[in-house]
């Protein structure tokens, strides 16, 4: 308990209220990485099982599967969680190993842009696939 108190004292009251650490970025990134990780546990199991069930079947079956609102919603959730999680993780890798400030910023923006575009493409494809039948 004494150790826990000591750690708490090392941060300013204002810093604690704003949830800001030494990096001034708070815990939002770390927390979002965990939240998406937890979400991806059931979503991944669901997707692998259904992908196996759809493997080798014609497109009409896939479209029928995706037309079910629950499947379309879970697919959209999977895509959103996947690209958010991937983008957060890749950003940390870049920040760890790329030391030039300009290159680092350019790479982070590139990663975030690519993740956002791929995510939007996937979501629009899901909506279109779900309304084929």
């Amino acid at each position: 308990m004494a150790a826990a108190n000591k750690i708490a004292v090392m941060r300013s009251e204002l810093g604690r209220v704003r949830a800001l650490g030494a990096g001034r970025a708070g815990t939002a990134h770390w927390w979002a990485q965990r939240v998406t990780a937890v979400a991806l546990v059931p979503l991944t199991i669901w997707f692998v099982i259904d992908a196996l069930r759809l493997a080798g079947l014609p497109r009409s079956v896939v479209a029928h599967w995706a037309s079910h609102p629950i499947n379309a919603a879970l697919l959209a959730a999977l895509v959103l969680a996947t690209f958010h999680h991937a983008q957060l993780g890749l950003r940390v890798v870049v920040e760890d190993y790329v030391h030039g400030e300009r290159t680092r910023m350019a790479l982070v923006l590139l990663i975030q842009g690519a993740a956002a575009i791929l995510c939007l493409i996937s979501l629009i494809a899901i909506v279109r696939l779900a309304t084929v039948v």
């Binding site: 996947t82 690209f83 991937a86 993780g89 791929l118 493409i121 996937s122 494809a125 696939l129």
Partner: peptide, 22 residues
Amino acid sequence: RATGIVLSAGTLLMVWWLVAAA
């Protein structure tokens, strides 16, 4: 870390599959 990077690249396969199906 390495598998995380590979999986990020692997999302292209998922996007291709979804777009093609659509």
